[in-house]
Design a binder for these strands. Structure first.
Lengths: 117, 117
DNA sequence: CATAGTAGGTTCCTAGAAGATAGTGACTAC
DNA sequence: GTAGTCACTATCTTCTAGGAACCTACTATG
């Protein structure tokens, strides 16, 4: 009984699952990066999760993975045109954030101060 | 060591956690709704999770909750102006979806067909 | 009188995802 | 021969979303 499901749910699952936006962000701002470089930029992600996310982004066509069979191995990740096409979405979101995020924080303070000790 | 964290992460956590977009969607398209009406529109959400999400949206100032002390009780939820201000974000996202989602599906098919049996 | 139904939840329990920790292979530098 | 590099995997623990059942306080039905 879902007569009117939200039409953007598929995109939300695609683009806004955990770690995907930070990964796309660093790749779009620093170009081609190696695994450990992404890891360092993100700061707190574990290799297991980062591998999972990158594999998924690769499968979805948002990043490319280039493996160089050297010792030690070298793998480079790069954002694709499809991934870059998301930038208007991120821009709109950043704009909303600048304009309205303070209101959210104010609402939270008001809610927390109201009879919930 | 996060010299350049993704600036939209706070908004992503706010707006794109599980069930929040569908909830905002039905509230923006059907106006003032009761708990069970939202439940029916979403179809597969459990009351526990729906309560949690609505409380959080209320705290963040994106929806209002109006309690009528009747028997049986009646509670109405409505989207706020702050919540409505997100519609450009959703519109950009819907647009991207229309234009690029097929490419994502094509990328997935290509990836799955390529040597991963 | 005894069920059954109603609205808006809560309580308890389980399954799956995220996260923390340690290890691997094949080399190089000290 | 010990330590370090890189891109991961393997294993364990925690955390959260989800499922099923129950609650209050009433009304309507048989």
């Amino acid at each position: 009984m879902t007569p009117d499901p939200c039409p953007i749910t598929p995109v939300v699952d695609l683009v806004f699952s955990r770690w995907t936006t930070p990964i796309l962000w660093v790749l779009s701002h620093h170009g081609r990066l190696r695994f450990t470089e992404i890891e360092r930029y993100l700061g707190s992600v574990t290799p297991k999760v980062l591998t999972e996310r990158l594999r998924r982004l690769e499968r979805d066509g948002l990043v490319t993975r280039t493996y160089h069979a050297e010792i030690p191995p070298r793998v480079e990740y790069e954002i694709t045109d499809l991934g870059r096409s998301l930038s208007p979405v991120f821009a709109t979101l950043a704009e909303w954030s600048d304009e309205h995020l303070p209101q959210v924080h104010a609402a939270r303070r008001a809610y927390d101060d109201m009879g919930r000790p």
